[in-house]
């Protein structure tokens, strides 16, 4: 070894550099693989959505709902895919149904538009009340008081064969003034 001092220090610099590069690279492989796989849900967003033919489900008949009566809660039961599993007839949510006139039914998703808690119907007060941050909605779903940015989310209702109540069950983005459907 009879390198000049400057060659020596060059070599040393090279070794330092190479160590760092190789060290970084070999550390990166498992880390990157892991992070990439952990991001997988973003590549599959929308999977696992419960699907019915046109989105409408038969929930009740007109006779089940007394005219002008209190809103009644109905569970939504559907086939559901969750990652590797497929389920038949799993509860996936609930709606309030309320018959307002002879031939008219309104439906609300029970999920609070604020941050997603389950909204209760209070018989005495005749209103909807969210127990999480005390948002208060009238029977028509309008926001009375509280922190919710909008009223309760109404759902499309169709009357089929004159008496069957079909509802299009949907979820909406939480905590926005706009009511935007989400696919989950």
């Amino acid at each position: 070894m009879n390198d000049t001092p400057s060659e020596k220090s060059d070599r040393r610099e090279f070794i330092k550099c190479a160590s760092c590069v190789i060290g970084g690279a070999i550390g990166l492989v498992p880390m990157a693989a892991g992070v990439y796989v952990a991001m997988d849900p973003l590549r599959h967003s929308g999977d696992g959505t419960a699907k019915t033919n046109d989105g409408f489900m038969r929930l009740a008949t007109l006779e089940d709902l007394p005219l002008g009566g209190a809103p009644m809660k109905y569970s939504i039961v559907a086939d559901k895919a969750d990652k590797w599993s497929r389920y038949k007839d799993m509860p996936i949510g609930a709606v309030y149904l309320q018959r307002t006139t002879e031939k008219q039914v309104v439906a609300f998703n029970t999920v609070c538009p604020h941050l997603g808690c389950f909204v209760d119907y209070r018989k005495e007060e005749k209103d909807f009340f969210c127990p999480c941050h005390n948002s208060n909605f009238s029977q028509t779903g309008a926001l009375k008081t509280g922190v919710s940015p909008r009223g309760m989310d109404s759902l499309e209702v169709e009357l089929r064969n004159d008496r069957e109540v079909w509802v299009k069950f949907q979820h909406f983005k939480a905590n926005t003034t706009e009511k935007t459907p989400v696919n989950s």
Binding site: A33, Y36, V37, D40, K83, W84
Partner: peptide, 19 residues
């Protein structure tokens, strides 16, 4: 079932499991 999901459905899952 979950390992199968990692291996077959998650992008890059086979690689991670292989490592």
């Amino acid at each position: 079932e979950s390992v199968h999901y990692i291996q077959e459905q998650m992008t890059g899952g086979w690689f991670l499991r292989g490592l």
